[in-house]
Design a binder for these strands. Structure first.
Lengths: 164, 164
DNA sequence: GCCAATTGCTTGAAGTTTAAAGAAATTGCA
DNA sequence: TGCAATTTCTTTAAACTTCAAGCAATTGGC
């Protein structure tokens, strides 16, 4: 243990162990919950998590969204979205139509069926998540929200600095 | 807004919106950081995140680990680990040897080169993570650690209940 | 000892993901 | 206008991932 002149524990200048442990814990939590959601989606609705996530993005809007929008919001690559959308159009959940002003752009929407199916899944999903966080008090949740918002801001700042 | 008899805002019995928002925020944070780490690993060391993660598990022990151990610790499927290990043995980072008491079991270790390479990457990685969380105070970090531990426990309870 | 159940790992199919390269269309600026 | 840069989307190859099925070895009753 290293002590400073006032006999208080201090960190070594290059010890970033606490941040690393925080990251590992964050990752563990997310992986755990994600795995749980994935299992349940497959089990109850025979749908994959990426498809659910994509539909969730589309359900937020009424009039559709471009592939680029989807890719940004989902934080995955363009090519990835191309494939996902393709399969979901194939299965009748989505609908695509080319923009009239820019022929590169495709507007993607949920079909009637797609939206209905998604809403059913989303209702269940919300209950699962509530149960997953069931041991947390409202205050815990507020605090977590606040701290994660701060963490998100910090991470964005860090990422931005690297790409500058 | 719904108010109870003492004029205090209350939630609808089935509104689990706060938990859902918490989950989305947790997911966003993790995805953001994971993407950042992935990019940097590729850029600076030309290594993928899954390989780094696997080596990180092995670096914690001196004498090796079985595939099952790896799969449990990494929270991924068995088949996944089989493939990752295969490629890392191929590239000379890992070493495998069959147990003498149970011929189903394979002990996996980092090779000398593998460990040296990993240590170099890990040192950088730790700095990146410290920067990612750079805006958080020590108190923020402690609080996040505590709340995430609670969330993890809650999620485990929930998962366990489902599989019971 | 026998054999059913379990455990450790591999395989194969389907799907997801990234990175990189490329095609098509639009934009902006000289 | 002309054309270089940018944007949108697709394509490709390689890797990653899960799930389910299967094989080989071990374990635990009996």
């Amino acid at each position: 243990m290293i002590l400073d002149s006032e006999t208080k524990a201090v960190e070594l200048p290059d010890d970033h162990g606490t941040e690393l442990r925080l990251w590992l814990r964050l990752l563990t939590c997310t992986t755990l919950i994600e795995g749980e959601v994935r299992s349940r989606l497959r089990e109850k609705f025979d749908v994959t998590l990426p498809r659910f996530d994509l539909m969730a993005q589309l359900d937020k809007v009424s009039d559709g969204m471009t592939l680029s929008d989807l890719s940004k919001r989902m934080m995955v690559s363009n090519g990835n979205v191309t494939g996902l959308v393709e399969r979901l159009v194939e299965s009748g959940h989505l609908d695509r139509r080319t923009s009239e002003t820019d022929r590169r752009v495709q507007f993607i929407r949920l079909t009637k069926t797609g939206r209905a199916e998604f809403r059913k899944m989303a209702a269940e999903h919300e209950k699962w998540i509530a149960d997953v966080f069931g041991d947390l008090s409202p205050k815990d949740i507020r605090e977590l929200m606040r701290l994660l918002a701060k963490a998100k801001g910090s991470a964005q700042r860090s990422a931005k600095a690297r790409n500058a």
